[in-house]
């Protein structure tokens, strides 16, 4: 057994165990954290397969962005595990059916993939001695630089648009102004009145 094999078995075992944990743990926050562990181990398996770029993508996109968002959602929503369990049981037959169909389809693809024409010849062959991230970057910044840059502009438009549409000046809403609050002196808000007895204020 080579060190690579050993690494694979360790990563795969932790991957499977944490994936099972995602499904079976009662606390949704623990489930999200276990999913993060699953992604890290899957990234490790990708590296062993020589797909470093996919591994980086998995960690940056899924762990860095999607899972953080999930964690926020799970923490902000009040999820009742008992209720969810009851609902889950009701959806079990349908869930099993969908899972079964998916498994059958994946098996069909896996079994027929090798027989497909052109399966052995990739569209872009990886040059000898070049990592896949570098090869991908070379293609993206040469052959596909035009659509790649346009895609960048699309993301910019999305960001500008999201901010412009959601950040409206609403004069009807009172906002907290910390500067105003700390700059406020007792004299601005209070008036000290000397009340002489028996005359009233």
């Amino acid at each position: 057994m080579t060190p690579a094999d050993l690494a694979f078995f360790v990563l795969a075992a932790v991957l499977l165990a944490s994936a099972l944990g995602v499904v079976f743990t009662r606390n949704p926050v623990h489930a999200v954290l276990l999913l993060v562990l699953t992604f890290f181990n899957a990234a490790g398996v990708f590296i062993l397969l020589g797909a470093e770029f996919l591994a980086m993508l998995l960690i940056i996109v899924y762990v860095g962005a999607v899972m953080v968002l999930f964690l926020f959602v799970v923490m902000m929503l009040r999820v009742d595990p008992a209720k969810m369990r009851a609902q889950g049981r009701a959806a079990l037959p349908l869930g099993l059916l969908v899972a079964g169909v998916l498994m059958a389809e994946m098996a069909a693809v896996a079994l027929s993939f090798a027989a497909l024409p052109g399966a052995a010849s990739p569209a872009f062959a990886l040059p000898e001695g070049v990592t896949d991230a570098r090869a991908l970057g070379r293609v993206l910044y040469t052959d596909f630089v035009y659509p790649f840059q346009v895609a960048g502009l699309i993301l910019l438009i999305a960001m500008v648009g999201a901010i412009a549409l959601t950040q409206r000046a609403r004069p009807d809403i009172k906002r907290q102004s910390v500067a105003d609050q700390t700059a406020r002196r007792p004299g601005d808000a209070m008036e000290i009145v000397k009340v002489t007895p028996r005359t009233g204020a």
Partner: peptide, 20 residues
């Protein structure tokens, strides 16, 4: 590919303007 990204770019910008 060039057609699709260009088309999405103008479409996304127009979606924003329509909602503005």
């Amino acid at each position: 590919l060039a057609l699709y990204v260009a088309m999405e770019m103008q479409a996304l910008a127009l979606y924003i303007l329509v909602s503005s």
